[in-house]
C-alpha cells in the first residue's frame, strides 16, 4: 500500500463529506465505505449559528483522518491563507490544495498551484495538490515539495470518469515512486476500478456517493471497486489483442462436420 506522508491506509478511498441528504447518511456512508480519510472545508461562521461546530463534532466521532481543502480559492494568497486557517482549526498539516483557474470546468490554475504548493511546503504543510495529468506540472509540484499528486479524472462533479486514461497512464509511468490519487470526475465504481488498474494509489470522490440514491450502498460499491482494481493490478492483467484466441482447448474435440 502507498504511503501518503507516512500514512498507509488499508482502504485508499478519500471520501468527501459534502452534499449528503443528512449528517446521519454521511456518517453511514463513511462507515460503510471503510474510508479512513475524509475531506472537509471551511466556511464563514456566523455567531448565532454554530453549524460548523456540530459538523466537526460528527466528524470527530467517526474517528477518521481529515484532509482539509482550499475549495473555491482562485488566487495563491487565498489558498495559502485558507490552508493556514485550516491547519489551526483541524489540527493537521495535510492540505488538499485547490487553486481554481476556470469556473466552467473548475480546472486548476497550475501556475498558481505550483507557487502555493511551494509556499505551503516550505511552511511545513503536507500538500495534496489537485492538478491535471500534465507531467511537466507534476514535476514542478514534486520540486516544490509535494510527495503526493492528485490529478483530475474529469471536471469536479461531472461524473465523467477518466477523460484521459492515456495521460493518466503516462503520469503513472513518469512518477513510479510518487503516490497518485485520482481526484474529481469519478461517477461510477467502474471508473475507480479503472484508475486502480492503471496503478493509481487512491481515489478521492464526493458527488458520486453523496448524490447517489443510496449513498451508503454506493460508498460500499466504491470500496469494493477500489479493492478489485488494486487486486487486478497486482494479479498482472493480460494484454488486449485484436484477434480472437480460443480459450477452450481444441485438441481432442470431436470431429462432427
Amino acid at each position: 500500500m502507498a504511503s501518503f506522508y507516512g500514512f498507509e491506509p488499508r482502504n485508499p478511498l478519500f471520501l468527501g463529506t459534502a452534499q449528503y441528504p443528512s449528517p446521519a447518511i454521511l456518517a453511514d456512508a463513511v462507515k460503510r465505505s471503510g474510508a479512513e480519510v475524509v475531506t472537509v472545508s471551511l466556511r464563514r461562521e456566523s455567531a448565532g449559528e454554530g453549524a460548523g461546530q456540530s459538523f466537526w463534532g460528527l466528524i470527530r466521532e467517526l474517528g477518521v483522518r481529515v484532509l482539509p481543502n482550499t475549495a473555491g480559492c482562485h488566487t495563491v494568497k487565498e489558498a495559502v491563507t485558507t490552508a493556514q486557517m485550516a491547519r489551526e482549526v483541524f489540527g493537521t498539516d495535510w492540505i488538499k490544495l485547490e487553486v481554481i483557474g476556470e469556473d466552467d470546468t473548475l480546472q486548476p490554475d497550475v501556475v498558481g498551484l505550483i507557487e502555493a504548493a511551494r509556499i505551503l511546503s516550505d511552511d511545513g504543510f503536507q500538500v495534496f495538490p489537485y492538478t491535471t495529468e500534465d507531467i511537466v506540472v507534476a514535476g514542478r509540484l514534486v520540486d516544490a515539495g509535494c510527495e503526493v499528486l492528485m490529478p483530475w479524472g474529469a471536471p469536479i462533479g461531472s461524473g465523467r470518469g477518466l477523460n484521459n486514461p492515456y495521460g493518466l497512464r503516462t503520469l503513472r509511468r513518469h512518477f513510479p515512486e510518487i503516490p497518485l490519487v485520482v481526484d474529481a470526475g469519478i461517477g461510477l465504481p467502474s471508473h475507480a476500478a479503472q484508475a486502480m488498474e492503471l496503478g493509481y494509489d487512491g481515489i478521492l470522490l464526493n458527488t458520486a456517493v453523496a448524490k447517489a440514491g443510496d449513498p451508503a450502498a454506493m460508498a460500499e460499491a466504491f470500496a469494493l471497486a477500489i479493492r478489485a482494481g488494486r487486486l487486478a493490478l497486482e494479479a498482472q492483467p493480460i494484454e488486449a489483442r485484436d484477434m480472437a484466441a480460443p480459450s477452450t482447448p481444441v485438441m481432442g474435440k470431436a470431429f462432427l462436420a
Binding site: S41, L42, R44, E45, A51, V89
Partner: peptide, 10 residues
C-alpha cells in the same frame, strides 16, 4: 475580518 469554521467539503 474573516471568521471561519469547519464545514463539509469534497
Amino acid at each position: 475580518i474573516e471568521v471561519v469554521s469547519p464545514m463539509q467539503g469534497g
